[in-house]
């Protein structure tokens, strides 16, 4: 099972390139897609879900163009969009049956899967409740359940844990890890901790290009000598924040620690001894590049 994205480009109008010669090959596992707003993540997902066609390049599923596969390709996808509206008068049960119908599931399989998925997302007791009466978190769980219907081979989840409480978030994360053995799971989220926990590999995107593709630990080690810190007082903080836009403030014991990312260590700063987080990796690769010139 392999998904190949080959030199895909997509422009909106003449001025803006949303995807710029993007290439990547994905095999079963969980992939975390990270990038700033406007990096091209949504465009990539729309192309992968057959909602948008690329201007140039190809996407191949096991060597076959997904445009040619059409319906057969879409039957392999499970997609959970972000900020999704739902039919208010539908119950969760009806909505899942509707999605099962659209996915072409047989009645017997649909019944089995819907029952299982309602259990997994803890909605069995609320299955006959109108979606209009659901909370944001419950709607999110229904959407996860529908994405998993039909046992998809390619699962594209856009902010799957948004709106969920910590317990539910952990449950869903664990479930995604469990099912990822024979699936390609693409997780798009700004919750770095979700990616840190379950993503085998992380895809960093910027201005429509792939800028880094590695494991979480690989990425962290790549910025091991790029993180610096300085203890500071509350009064010093505004001045530091003004000087270093890629800074992160941590509360440690009774003082504040100002951490920055960069290629060289500024005066008064020292290399960080403590653990580097994926957020700092993100800051280094995504934000620092833009602000390089601002460093003293």
């Amino acid at each position: 099972m392999e998904l190949q994205i080959k030199n895909v480009s997509k422009s909106y109008g003449k001025s803006k390139r949303a995807l710029d010669d993007f290439s990547l090959t994905l095999t079963p596992g969980v992939y975390g897609l990270l990038g700033a707003n406007g990096a091209g993540k949504s465009t990539l997902m729309n192309i992968l879900t057959d909602n948008l066609s690329a201007d140039t390049g190809k996407i191949l599923w096991d060597g076959e163009d997904i445009r040619r596969l059409g319906k057969r390709y879409r039957s392999l996808i499970g997609y959970m969009p972000q900020q999704q509206g739902l039919y208010d008068s539908f119950t969760a049960n009806r909505f899942l049956w509707y999605m099962a119908a659209l996915k072409g599931l047989k009645k017997k399989d649909a019944k089995k899967q819907i029952t299982e998925l309602l259990n997994i997302v803890s909605l069995k007791n609320d299955a006959h409740k109108r979606l209009g009466d659901y909370s944001g978190g419950m709607k999110q769980r229904v959407l996860i359940a529908q994405a998993l219907l039909g046992e998809p081979k390619l699962l594209i989840l856009d902010e799957p844990t948004a709106g969920l409480d910590p317990k539910e978030r952990i449950r869903i994360r664990s479930f995604i890890s469990e099912i990822a053995a024979d699936k390609i799971v693409i997780l798009v989220t700004h919750v770095v901790s979700d990616i840190e926990c379950i993503a085998d590999r992380i895809i960093l995107m910027k201005n429509g290009r792939l800028i880094k593709y590695d494991t979480s630990s690989g990425l962290i080690s790549s910025v091991a000598d790029k993180v610096f810190e300085k203890k500071c007082s509350k009064e010093e903080l505004p001045e530091l924040q003004k000087s270093f836009s890629c800074g992160n403030v941590l509360q440690r014991d009774e003082c504040l620690v100002f951490r920055i990312v960069g290629d060289r260590c500024p005066d008064d700063f020292s290399a960080s001894n403590s653990e580097i987080s994926l957020e700092e990796v993100y800051l280094y690769y995504i934000e620092y590049e833009n602000d390089k010139n601002d460093l003293p």
């Binding site: 997609y79 999704q84 659209l102 996915k103």
Partner: peptide, 9 residues
């Protein structure tokens, strides 16, 4: 978007 990503959508 969700409907169009399904086989019958």
């Amino acid at each position: 978007r969700l409907l169009r990503s399904t086989p019958s959508g």
